[in-house]
Design a protein around this nucleic acid. Structure first.
Length: 219
DNA sequence: CGATTTTGACCCGCGC
DNA sequence: GCGCGGGTCAAAATCG
């Protein structure tokens, strides 16, 4: 059973269940997982730039996957893209790893483009990918993810992992795959937009916000 | 002991 | 129609 084609346009039901308890399985409440200390924000991350400008340090997906040219244009210029507060889907690049991210473009994209457009064209889910040089497979982007599958990829020595956002009402998915050419590079593909705030980001920012609140109260 | 991962089965679209 | 490749399910295993 698949989720794509029978899924109703209205969220948050991500797919048609195979059985009655299937739906429950997908949305069961999940416990908080522990942080991976190795991929917490590190010294390389430019916090001052991050805080002074909302457009830096963030990656926001401006292009649905079925717009390949658009993607390419952005891909070759920079990893820093406009941050759209309305969409609310942001990723702190610096928090992911060392701030070095490159938009990924190879035939994987063409393949996905076809799949997305043909299978579920009525709901164009924003999807984007980027590369990160990291020894870690799991990159901490501030959200909690539940792994639901792993597949070996053709012409690749490394498998691809499938994750779903652990949040109850959120159906964002991501794929993680290590390049067979350069095993030090991890390709992460995000699909969808989070419909909830990033707890970890809020958590990290709250002391700072409190401090700012306090300072402004001094007049 | 509940949450998460693992892993083989299953589904589906596509090309031949 | 069939096989292949990619994506997902779900029971069992593992983890914390």
């Amino acid at each position: 059973m698949d989720d794509h084609q029978e899924a109703p346009q209205t969220q948050p039901i991500p797919h048609l269940p195979r059985s009655s308890h299937d739906h429950d399985h997908d949305h069961q409440p999940l416990n908080q997982t522990s942080l991976n200390p190795a991929i917490a924000p590190n010294d390389d991350f430019d916090w001052s730039a991050f805080l002074s400008s909302p457009t830096s340090g963030f990656i926001y997906n401006p292009n649905p996957i079925d717009n390949h040219d658009h993607h390419q244009r952005h891909g070759q210029q920079s990893s820093v893209l406009d941050y759209d507060g309305d969409k609310g889907c942001v990723l702190a690049a610096g928090m992911i790893n060392n701030g070095i991210t490159n938009f990924h473009e190879d035939k994987l994209w063409d393949k996905r483009k076809e799949m997305t457009s043909s299978r579920s064209r009525r709901t164009s889910v924003p999807r984007f990918a980027f590369e990160t040089r990291s020894s870690q497979d799991i990159l901490d982007d501030g959200y909690r993810w539940r792994k639901y599958g792993q597949k070996s990829v053709k012409n690749s020595t490394y498998p691809r992992s499938y994750y779903r956002c652990s949040h109850l009402t959120c159906s964002v998915k991501k794929q993680v795959q290590r390049l067979s050419k350069d095993s030090s590079i991890v390709v992460t593909t995000y699909e969808g937009v989070h419909n909830h705030p990033c707890e970890k980001l809020m958590e990290a920012l709250s002391p700072l916000l409190n401090q700012m609140k306090f300072l402004s109260s001094l007049g």
